[in-house]
Amino acid sequence: MSLAFQAEGLVKRFGKTTALAGIDLAAEQGTVLGVLGPNGAGKTTAVRILATLLRADEGRATVGGYDVVRDAGDVRRLIGLTGQYASVDEDLTGTQNLVLIGELLDLRRRDAKARAAELLEWFDLTEAANRPAKTYSGGMRRRLDLAASLVGRPAVIYLDEPTTGLDPAKREDMWGVVRSLVNDGSTVLLTTQYLDEADALADDISVIDHGKVIAHGTPAQLKQIAGGQTILVRPLDPARLPEVATILGTVAGREPESPGRGVVTVPVDDDRAFPTVVRRIEDAGIGVMELSLRLPSLDEVFFTLTGKPAVEVAA
């Protein structure tokens, strides 16, 4: 496998602020790299450097083997960019926006129109095709933005917080689009503040904070960082909660917690703990409504890594 893009030791300062303090990012072809971090972590700055919009003060980056500074023109042929900043023109219709980009990508006008129609249909915007983009809803705008970045069939697609501000159903739609892009062989760099989004889409995740990568790995590896697994039990009869807590405490060898009404949880390190708990609860004749073994959420991972919640400002 070859790398679709690679950034090494990127540093970027804006006046006294250090946006990037030496960041490495890379993704193999046909995979999704999730770049996860809170507002102001440096996600957008990194994307802008990889998209040739901004020059790094130090470090280097390549896309498809081309240097983002020296071979910027070649890089621009390979990439598609969608973000809150790389937006469409509000006064133009959906079709006009996409045809314009097609023409700028040297498609013949006829081909540009065909491509526009195709993308509008794929993104379910055919009915709105001839309306100015300013009349679009938020979700439609995002879809048009994404369509605009796909006109040239980019091999590498940057999605900078593509679902921020979208309602849950629209997010699911967007996730479906990202998955199909990857199925088609594209490589995606996805920045997000949402841990569930990175978990759902990314093959690899780089967690960044204050301009540095503070963790990198598969979603499963990152979950390992936050400690082992957690057993959760919800008895049918809430009155039997103390009994359940005692069993969990004995098996796990530590104090169980009660994070919600009628639920007890305890973190465990041993793989045999879960079957033991199941057996003991059965022996005690306690009916359960819910009994599960789960990995820590990425929220917990982030908290472990940085000592603070992932999403402080937004959402």
Binding site: S2, Q29, G30, G64, G65, Y66, R77, L78, L105, D106, L107, D111, A114, R115, E118, W122, L150, R153, A155, S180, L181, N183, D184, G185, S186
Partner: peptide
């Protein structure tokens, strides 16, 4: 990039992918 990536019709569609035709007066 040397590898040509295969795409399904949803993303590929009409025009040929790869380098655009060299056209003058860009």
């Amino acid at each position: 990039m040397t590898t040509t990536i295969e795409r399904n019709p949803a993303v590929t569609g009409t025009a040929p992918s790869g380098q655009p035709p060299a056209r003058t007066f860009r």
